[in-house]
Write a protein that binds this DNA or RNA. Structure first.
Lengths: 236, 236
DNA sequence: GTCTATACTACGATAGAC
DNA sequence: GTCTATCGTAGTATAGAC
């Protein structure tokens, strides 16, 4: 609904109409199983799990509904396999961009860059992550091995970020902020932004996933982390 | 799913078990119509619109499914009426807390406080707002008068915030940030946080909606806006 | 590995009695 | 204003032919 809501706001949005250069998720889908996962990821990201029927998944794959059950036991398993892939992709980016030899402030910059890159890489990532974070479990995650796998990946990601913040505070490079509050703020600044979809594009007055928009987002978050918004910080 | 994911992280969370002092949304529901709206708001916030069946709404009201259609033409209309109420509540808080005589920096502080208050007032507000922002329209909003009403309320809220940021930059009280990026960051820091539900509570190590947690959240966002995270800002 | 056919449940919505 | 009954569709899932 928010589409139209904000279109009233943007009058000077020349760059808006430009089509997003959104390539398919690298490979052209080898096996049927891969194809299903890709299609389901796209649909789950858009409509959510409850809003996506397996029929629509099957149709988008050029398959019959029943064929899905040859590759996945249930909708819940398919869902958690999709989520698990997403979390793994994020973790891979974050760990491969880690720079243990640097100080906390620089490591945080790298962490934000890597997180933004992982969210910007595919437009499905942020919506799926956001949904997984704030939605109630429609299925009980612990009952499926795919669910617990995704959970533990997320746990590692969060724990590493908390550790980074704690170290920065301890060393005096960061202010003495509340670690969980700060983490929530960083998640909001990154995940929400790239999940905001059409609302975000209208608000931004242009594409969210273009290379330029991603660069600007990194820059803005970084400056916000380093200096806040207000120009003259009061005496600390 | 995220419940269990993070329970592995929090060992020192003594305040966690405390039951939230969550009062019902002030009045004890006069008419049936009001009751339906309240119940639907709670369920839509938890499971989303697609994930909530009208049967569950009716059951929670002590009504039969068909009775809902005496008060609302369709599920879509009920949904947008719920959303419209939520948006109106937020706008009311924001406008009644506006202080036109103050400068942009102080007005922004008040705006953040009012937004946080409106999100903390009822735990349903932030999830519903977040869903409305980032989810695709399951129904076309423009086709229903309730949809367009909600849209225009949101448009006014966003436009006012953009104007506030623009004025702050113009007067030199804010740095020369990207207005839409900053707005997205502020939305993420507020709306996402209070929508993060059980994940947020586990991450925070305690309740999100307690008076103390809300105070801390305001303080943290304010300090982030004023000073960022990093202790010694580099020369500007 | 994909298909047709089918089972069963839930969905949104309508009609009409009370 | 609420109910029962019903419609038509779509939901997840299974069985078995090809």
């Amino acid at each position: 609904m928010v589409l139209d809501a904000l279109e009233a706001l943007e009058e000077a949005s020349e760059g808006m109409g430009a089509p997003l250069p959104q390539r398919p998720p690298q490979t052209p889908a080898a096996s049927s199983r891969e194809k299903i996962l890709e299609v389901a990821e796209a649909l789950f990201a858009r409509r959510g799990s409850a809003g996506t029927g397996l029929q629509s998944v099957a149709e988008a794959c050029g398959l019959g509904k029943s064929s899905l059950f040859h590759h996945f036991d249930s909708k819940a398993q398919l869902y958690y396999e999709v989520i698990g892939r997403v979390f793994a992709r994020i973790e891979e980016r974050l760990t491969s961009a880690a720079t243990p030899h640097c100080g906390p402030a620089e490591r945080l910059d790298r962490w934000i860059d890597a997180l933004v890159d992982s969210l910007a890489e595919q437009p499905t990532t942020a919506p799926l992550l956001l949904r997984a974070l704030f939605e109630e479990d429609e299925f009980a995650a612990a009952n499926l091995p795919e669910g617990t796998a995704a959970e533990s990946t997320l746990t590692r990601i969060i724990a590493a970020a908390q550790h980074l913040l704690a170290e920065g505070i301890e060393r005096g490079e960061f202010r003495q902020v509340s670690i969980p509050d700060t983490l929530q703020t960083l998640i909001g600044a990154t995940v929400y932004h790239f999940a905001s979809g059409e609302f975000g594009e209208v608000l931004m007055g242009g594409p969210i996933f273009s290379a330029e928009a991603v660069r600007r987002r990194k820059r803005e978050i970084r400056s916000f982390v380093h200096q806040g918004l207000v120009a003259s910080p009061p005496a600390r």
